[in-house]
Simulated scan of single mutants.
Amino acid sequence: MTTTLTQSGSDRDRPARSTMKDVAQLAGVSVKTVSRVVNGEPGASVAVRERVLQAAERLDYRHNLGASTLRRKDARSGIVGALLQDVGNSFSAGLLRALEDAVREAGLSVLAASLDEEPERERGLVSDLVARRADGLVLMPASDRHEYLLSEHRAGLPLVFVDRRPHGLDCDSVTIDNRLGASSATAHLIAGGHRRIAMLSDLYEIETARERVAGYRAALDEAKIPFDPQLLVHSVRSEQEAEQIVTDLLGTADAPTAFLTGRNILTVGAVRALRSLGLSHQIALVGFDDFPLADLVEPALTVVRQDVRRIGTEVGRILLDRLAGDTSPPQHVVLEPSLVCRGSGEIRPPSEGIHRD
Rank of each mutant, 00 (worst) to 15 (best):
S8E: 15
D177E: 02
L274W: 11
A44W: 09
P329S: 10
A55C: 00
S280K: 07
R210W: 05
A16Y: 04
S90I: 14
A93D: 08
H188T: 08
K32L: 08
L285C: 07
G28N: 10
S45E: 10
L250R: 04
D307Q: 12
I197T: 06
T3Y: 05
A270C: 12
V23D: 02
L249I: 04
V138A: 01
R164P: 01
V304A: 06
Y204S: 15
R310F: 00
E57F: 00
A198D: 04
P42T: 11
D321P: 10
G251M: 01
A102G: 09
A47P: 02
L319Y: 08
S351R: 15
V333E: 12
R17V: 02
P350K: 04
K73L: 12
G168Y: 09
S184R: 14
N264W: 13
D221E: 14
F227Q: 14
L335H: 10
A270Y: 05
E207I: 13
T261N: 12
I206A: 13
A113P: 09
P350D: 10
V126E: 01
D357V: 12
V31A: 06
L266S: 08
M140S: 14
P226S: 09
Q244N: 13
L320Q: 04
N89G: 15
T208I: 05
G262D: 06
D289A: 09
F227L: 15
R145H: 09
L285F: 07
L149Q: 01
D295V: 03
P329Q: 04
E241I: 06
I225M: 06
V29K: 03
T6P: 01
E117F: 11
K21P: 01
G193I: 11
G156E: 00
V333N: 13
V297T: 08
D228H: 07
V29M: 02
R356P: 06
